[in-house]
């Protein structure tokens, strides 16, 4: 029971982090990052290979690079950094000159290719089999199988999610966030006002990448395995579904979406009686995710908790109506 609840909460924390990042990129800034999941994967792999011992340990049943056996906070910090550092090279190719829908398909193709490369290069990150037996943080000091450890891990993950929530909240409420929204609404106008759209997109890409990397590290530290099958490109679409359902551009919406879609779906199918041939339920689940996106974009494109319309608190005093403006108000 403890294990069930803590697993649920850790997944919730990871999905909340991911949805906050997507909400910042897609909801606030209008960048459709279809390769989002590879940032999470990069973080997870980084945390894994930094905390695993050399690949000759454990009888050498898996092959991977590094294997530095570093202790706790370092792999997580490195995962965050790698997520952030992965953003500039991708952003430089994709975000500079391309039209917005091209950016999206370029990143989609990148996501497919990255998974292909990792799968076909066993010496790099153990190919399709993936990494297993990743040591859990501080497992040398505490017993990672105890209830207390699970609860502590969950609490840590949730605290990180809350911290990131406030950071993202801070970003989108700042003047900088206002510039981001201006860019989303009308990029040409934002540029005309002297805003550097490429730099703004790039910075959002980096921040989102860092959050994604951290979320990957949290996840892999808990489930201790990571393989290409966990980061196929449709996974990104689930997160987009979550943000669209919750309400893009609204952090509360992102949290709600994370709880409703990735977490909710996983839990709903757990209690469903098995029916049909094996694989039918996952297939139907994907159909529902697709249907959810289409349905929400059609009926409620702004989501359950729409982004707040930002208005000035006090209206400036009306200017004396001159003849020119009379009757316009």
């Amino acid at each position: 029971m403890t294990y069930y609840v803590t697993t649920l909460l850790v997944y919730a924390a990871v999905d909340i982090l991911a949805c906050l990042a997507i909400s910042l990129q897609f909801g606030v800034s209008g960048i459709v990052n279809f390769s989002f999941i590879i940032f999470q994967a990069a973080g997870a792999y980084t945390a894994a290979v930094l905390s695993l011992p050399r690949d000759t340990a454990n009888g050498g049943f898996q092959t991977y690079i590094l294997g530095l056996n570093l202790s706790f906070p370092i792999p997580w910090i490195a995962a965050t950094l790698v997520g952030a550092l992965l953003a500039p090279p991708i952003g430089l190719v994709v975000l500079r000159r391309l039209r917005s829908d091209y950016q999206a398909i370029a990143m989609l193709v990148l996501s497919v290719i990255a998974s292909l490369v990792v799968t076909n290069t066993p010496a790099f990150l153990d190919g399709a089999a993936g990494l297993a037996l990743v040591p859990q943080p501080l497992s040398d000091k505490f017993n990672p199988y105890s209830d207390g450890y699970h609860w502590a891990y969950t609490a840590g993950a949730l605290v990180l999610a809350v911290i990131v929530f406030f950071i993202v909240q801070r970003i989108i409420n700042s003047p900088y966030g206002r510039s981001l929204r201006a860019m989303r609404e009308n990029e040409v106008a934002a540029k005309a006002l002297g805003k550097n759209a490429v730099a703004m997109k790039m910075s959002v890409f980096v921040v989102g990448g860092a959050i994604a990397g951290l979320s990957g590290a949290i996840l892999v530290g808990f489930i201790t395995t990571w393989a290409p099958s966990t980061w196929l490109y449709p996974e990104t679409l689930i997160l987009f579904a979550a943000v669209i359902v919750g309400g893009r551009g609204n952090n509360y919406g992102a949290v709600l979406g994370a709880l409703l879609v990735p977490v909710g779906f996983e839990e709903a199918t757990r209690y469903l009686p098995t029916f049909g041939p094996p694989g039918l339920i996952p297939a139907l689940e994907w159909v529902c995710i697709g249907g959810l996106i289409l349905g929400f974009l059609w009926f409620r494109p702004r989501g359950v908790l729409p982004e707040q319309r930002r208005v000035f608190a006090a209206r400036p005093k009306p200017i004396e109506a001159t003849e020119q403006y009379a009757g316009r108000d």
Binding site: F34, D101, L237, A283, W286, G291, L294, L297, W298
Partner: peptide, 26 residues
């Protein structure tokens, strides 16, 4: 017709692709 922007249309077509693939599977 509803005025969905380019980005919205890309997301929609990807969602459609997912639906087609998973309706076909069973």
């Amino acid at each position: 017709r509803k005025g969905t922007n380019l980005i919205g249309m890309v997301i929609i077509s990807l969602a459609v692709s997912l639906v087609i693939a998973n309706v076909m599977l069973p």
